[in-house]
Design a binder for these strands. Structure first.
Length: 778
DNA sequence: CAGTGAGCGAGCTTCCGCTTGACTT
């Protein structure tokens, strides 16, 4: 046992550091926070100056007692958690929980995992920065107050189990508001003029030259008039200008930029990227993957430089230090980079390989020379008009960093292809081949992707690298937001073509607005957002986090007690909470559509216990209202009275089969046929409003046939046990429970006794909860 | 997988930020 124990946050980090420090130092990990506000209740003592009620969570108890034992045996305890607000708090909680004393505790910090940095840290220890810890306590307490006072209001007023919070509610608001911008967006047409000219190259061969009019016309008439003017015009080159320009590489990856690029270039979801990166980190291939810093260590820059010289040459090197631009960055770590710059590729699965290569390229490119480009602009005069055509071309004169990496962007139509121009001279005259006027439309704003939402949140300073991925899944798990595709819509546009002196006028068709894997708000998301905006505007304000962060900074500087900061916020906030509870309207988000033409009763839509529903009539003593669930593609905001009435055409009876009624209805999982208390799903191709009795009977008979094939084996001894064929292969079913068959056994050969054995053994170790973490019931 | 939505009432849900496992039905 060493004389020194060093505690860091991550076990992978512990392993690396131990190698640098030698045998006198034993490096262990706290696995993040070891103590937090009690899980249950708000756990803040409002009568005692907001005293937090902390506890060691059950899954950390064992770890904490081990750490306590090791700390008591060591001569010196080095608290080496990250140098940011959370890291300082972890150090303080360790100090408290492990009952450390000041004389045998030292606080050290380093931003990079290099031997120099760590030795240097050991030589310059300090004390725990209590003001910084207090800033963290303020942050923690504020988030708990917001989350645990707002969520119950939503349970009462909208639906149970909903949630609200400083981060997630703003994320949902962004998506809801973007959707509304899209629905209210009116696109405007304009007319873009492009021309194809004919000229000769050095060998006298005919080549084409593409040019565009910088001006766009507002109306078709104007565009047409311009083409008329071009009919008999002379075109001649007035000017050719060449301008050198440069392109610089992007900064090395942070968590957020890695998520964006992996989504764009590799198509990974935010969660996927983090899982793969974690794996690379654990295998020692990359530095820490949750960081907001673009900083590279001196070691990294030097080895990158050596590597660039090795594979490309000295002229490709340009070392750079990047400065972070994002709000609220705490920069406790390095940027995400390969551990070894000379390792261009790695062993691993496809996903790991691709992500590693992306990180390698981005890091290396960041230390490479600018790309040099020569831009040529050709101005083409028109004898009959004041307007001028512009042709532009680009030649890459030095590739620089582009040799390895090009950052991509989110723009949906990247039609701007840069090309080389044929040889041209001033005063050359040109012949037009054709001149086109194309009707173009202004574009609506795009829906967010997971990654572009992360970028927006980071821009607003909301959320941290460790929470981007979990936040994205929370808002989807709560059903505030759905990831989905949208088919494009057909749109017609006008195309005028001037060719050989005549203008033709045609209408063409295009598909626009196709979207894949975008975030769409649900009805619940919209209703919750509206409610929060109406009652807690200050909390869902895009600047709320930035404002409270300023307060936390004052706390961290030691100029303000954290409880005072909280008190300032809580007084106003809690008044809003009480006001909104007092407000008698029980349900929010209800919309009246009109009256039922046959009965005259009011028809409305609202959020029910299981999602959006339409309702005919009111709840009175005499009678119950009628309900119908909205279809997936319908929404409370846009459904019309006619569409709502359609929903009440189900359930309906289509006839009889085997002397029992056959009815059609729609439930949680879509439309179904009900017959003799059994259910049969109706496939998408069949319209439940039009399904006939014979079609329904077909469905019933097909399902019966399938069920027959599903049973592999039954036992005479016990009818409750069956061997069934399922989605994941054969399994045993007893009553309502399923049991998997061990891989060593063949399903067809199992005897009754074998089955009993399997059930018994699985039931015994199935005691612990089988629920998956972070994934809530459907 | 399960096919609901009144009203009653018990008992549950919920935040953000640090970390990594144990699970795959």
């Amino acid at each position: 046992m060493g004389k020194n124990i060093v505690i860091v946050e991550s076990p992978a980090k512990a392993k690396t550091i131990e190698k640098f420090l030698g045998k006198d130092y034993h490096v262990v990990s706290s696995f993040g926070h070891i103590r937090d506000l009690k899980k249950k209740d708000i756990s803040i003592d409002f009568n005692n100056n907001y005293a937090p009620i902390y506890e060691v969570p059950t899954d950390k108890k064992k770890l904490v007692s081990e750490l306590k034992k090791k700390a008591s045996e060591a001569e010196m305890v080095w608290l080496a958690s990250d140098e940011d607000r959370e890291g300082e708090a972890i150090a303080w909680h360790l100090f408290e929980v492990l009952s450390l004393t000041e004389d045998k505790t030292k606080r050290i910090v380093f931003h990079e995992i290099t031997k120099d940095a760590i030795i240097n840290a050991i030589q310059t220890p300090r004390k725990i920065d209590k003001a910084l810890v207090d800033a963290q306590q303020a942050r923690r307490v504020l988030d708990r107050i917001v989350g645990f006072e707002l969520s119950p209001i939503l349970w009462k007023k909208i639906k149970p189990s909903l949630s609200a919070g400083r981060v997630q509610s703003v994320a949902v608001r962004l998506i809801v508001e973007r959707e509304r911008e899209i629905t209210t967006f009116k696109s405007e047409a304009n007319y873009r003029i492009t021309a194809v000219f004919i000229t000769k190259d050095t060998q006298g061969k005919t080549v084409e030259l593409q040019a565009e009019l910088p001006k766009r016309f507002k109306t078709k008439e104007e565009a047409n008039r311009f083409l008329e003017v071009c009919k008999d015009a002379q075109f001649n080159i007035e000017d050719i200008s060449k301008k050198p320009s440069k392109k610089s590489p992007a900064a090395p990856f942070t968590t957020s930029t890695l998520q964006q690029e992996a989504a764009r270039k590799l198509g990974y979801s935010v969660a996927q990227t983090m899982m793969v990166a974690q794996k690379l980190y654990e295998n020692g291939l990359i530095t820490y993957m949750r960081t907001d810093s673009v900083n590279l260590s001196a070691l990294a820059i030097n080895t990158a430089k050596a590597e660039i010289i090795h594979f490309a040459g000295e002229q490709y090197v340009k070392t750079r230090q990047y400065a972070t631009k994002s709000k609220g960055a705490q920069e406790a770590h390095e940027a995400i980079r390969p551990t070894y710059m000379n390792q261009h590729t790695i062993e691993g699965n496809r996903q790991e390989k691709f992500l590693y290569e992306l990180i390698w390229k981005r890091t290396i490119a960041s230390q490479m020379a600018d790309a040099e480009i020569e831009k040529t602009t050709v101005t083409i005069g028109i004898s009959t008009s004041e307007e001028r055509f512009i042709a532009s071309g680009e030649v890459l004169t030095f590739d620089g960093f582009l040799k390895v990496y090009m950052e991509s962007n989110d723009d949906e139509d990247t039609t701007e292809d840069t090309k080389m121009l044929p040889p041209l001279h001033v005063h050359d005259t040109l012949q037009y081949k054709k001149i086109l006027s194309t009707e173009r439309f202004t574009q609506r704003p795009p829906r967010y992707t997971e990654a572009s939402l992360v970028r927006k949140l980071e821009e607003l300073g909301i959320g941290r690298p460790s929470t981007y991925a979990p936040t994205i899944s929370t808002i989807q798990n709560r059903e505030y937001v759905e990831k989905g595709d949208k088919e494009g819509e057909k749109r017609t546009y006008n195309l005028l073509t001037l060719e050989k002196g005549t203008i033709t006028d045609i209408i063409k068709e295009e598909i626009v607005g196709t979207e894949k894997s975008k975030l769409f708000p649900t009805d619940i998301g919209s209703v919750v957002t509206d409610f929060l905006l109406a009652n807690f505007a200050s909390v869902v304000d895009y600047n709320f986090t930035a404002k409270v962060e300023k307060e936390f900074d004052i706390v961290a500087s030691g100029k303000l007690e954290w409880q005072k900061a909280i008190d300032k916020f809580y007084k106003g906030f809690h008044t809003l909470v009480e006001d909104s509870l007092q407000n008698s309207t029980k349900k929010v988000g209800e919309r009246l559509l009109g009256n039922d033409p046959t009965t005259g009763k009011p028809i409305s839509v609202k959020i029910g216990r299981y999602g959006a529903i339409a309702q005919i009539g009111l709840t009175t003593e005499e009678e119950k209202p009628q309900f119908a669930a909205l279809k997936k593609e319908q929404s409370i905001e846009t459904i019309t009275l006619e569409e709502a009435l359609e929903l009440f055409k189900l359930p309906r009876t289509v006839g009889e089969f085997e002397e029992k009624e056959v009815t059609i209805a729609v439930g949680r999982f879509g439309p179904y046929v009900k017959h003799a208390s059994a259910f049969y799903s109706i496939p998408k191709e069949i319209d439940p409003l039009k399904i006939t009795l014979s079609q329904a009977i077909d469905l019933i008979e097909k399902k019966r046939e399938d069920d027959k094939n599903k049973v592999l084996k039954t036992f005479a001894e016990d009818a409750s046990i069956q061997l069934l064929n399922g989605r994941y292969g054969a399994y045993i079913k007893q009553n309502k429970n399923n049991y998997k068959i061990p891989k060593s056994k063949k399903a067809e050969e199992l005897t009754y006794e074998d089955c009993l054995e399997i059930i018994k053994s699985e039931a015994s170790d199935g005691d612990k909860p089988k629920k998956k973490k972070g994934f809530k019931k459907k």
